[in-house]
Write a protein that binds this DNA or RNA. Structure first.
Lengths: 226, 226
DNA sequence: ATTTATATATAAAAATTGCATAGATTTTAT
DNA sequence: ATAAAATCTATGCAATTTTTATATATAAAT
């Protein structure tokens, strides 16, 4: 099937997740050449010889968005020989959690946010990659509060709960959620309140600044400090 | 630094872990050519164009050992440009948990088991890969009893506890361990006892046969069944 | 006054932790 | 040959912590 004189190509693809309009969304790019011309795909690109995989993923992320200090983690490497119809392309997939407010995308029709729950036809195995990124995000959420990566710098507990509910795909009890959230290491209660349009103002919270560019591969389960 | 006409090469490397002589051990191969000639390395090889990454890892595993129905999971992809001194080699690392009794290795001096706690000088970034495989094994152990992959088909609870203690790197309370172990889904109590040399015979247990060759990437946290 | 979102407490159930003694068999001593 | 000692197996309970379930008052906008 394969001529062994062909060589592997290696790419990175980045699942960029955010919360927008009360739903989980993923950034997709419309392909403008074959294969899968016209189909949507997650942003990706070839790994350069001079960069490591994290750097390649960050570069791809920055080509599409203007973000900094982002949660970016290697997800999985997909290497099925038939995943690309014309070539042997192995892709190292990453996923990023970003604040939609932080993001400036070049707003051509060829790039845009799509609800994870309502994806268009996707190129390659990108649907599988997105689904796996959701699973990994849920796993991460069970051991540490990465959801704040999706929220504004200052957020209400209700917003945080919404983020959890969107990721976990189920409703959570408000009182229990608040109790647990308030005991989270790193959560800072501000003396500020929403003064927005709505009803009773809600207290704002923030997260202490954690250096995100440390080794994500060696992701540490936070020990509870008593 | 890099001439962009060079191309990437892609390999798989497999951390093969077992319990032997009351310690966690990893299978290493002594390199017989440059670079790192004479240093120890985890088994690996180039990914063929016709195989996917899981298949490549399994092939490498089977070249070194004669095993079947093994726990094998993709670990992480390492792609630092300088990880190989002469070439640009990206490696997709896997880890396997095997029963030492199941393994027949070609017993030349160039291949053998080494205590994870006392590794020789290793080639490339293989020390980091082994350390990360240990971390992943601990994480897996927290959500499901993969340790039985390291035990004989029939084992005592004391042996199982030893395996947990070796992986977690700490002593566990015997009574609490037994209570938890006995509530583990899939554990089967046998009507057999050790008749070995030692003192009071211990009851033997086994694990129900789980199909291990299903999608390990999409590793499922076992829900407790009540 | 009504509406709407924020905010809060408690009791029950479940899970985890810490801890001590008796039983079965082999080994050793007399 | 018998008894005593040693060694490993096996087991229960109370205290603590965590999780779960549930209902009402408060603050601001309309």
């Amino acid at each position: 099937m394969f001529n062994e004189t062909k060589t592997h190509e290696i790419t990175v693809d980045v699942v960029i997740l955010t919360i927008k309009n009360n739903s989980l969304q993923v950034l997709l790019v419309k392909r403008t050449n074959e294969p899968f011309n016209g189909k949507w795909a997650i942003p990706g690109g070839y790994v350069r010889l001079s960069e490591n995989l994290d750097e390649a993923a960050l570069r791809v992320l920055k080509e599409k968005t203007a973000v900094d200090n982002i949660y970016l983690e290697q997800l999985y490497t997909f290497g099925d020989p038939l995943r690309h119809p014309n070539a042997r392309v192995i892709t190292c997939a990453y996923f990023a959690l970003v604040r939609s407010e932080d993001i400036k995308i070049v707003s051509t029709p060829e790039i845009g946010w799509h609800k994870v729950s309502d994806l268009p036809a996707l190129a390659f195995d990108h649907k599988e990659i997105i689904q796996y990124s959701m699973k990994r995000t849920r796993e991460r959420l069970e051991i540490c509060p990465v959801a704040y990566q999706l929220l504004s710098e200052k957020f209400t507990l209700t917003e945080m709960q919404k983020a959890y509910e969107l990721i976990m795909g189920k409703k959570l009890d408000k009182r229990n959620f608040r109790k647990k959230a308030l005991s989270t290491d790193g959560l800072i209660e501000l003396e500020e309140y929403t003064k927005s349009s709505s009803k009773r103002p809600a207290r704002l919270y923030t997260f202490e600044n954690i250096e995100l560019n440390s080794k994500r591969a060696h992701f540490i389960k936070k020990e509870k400090v008593k």
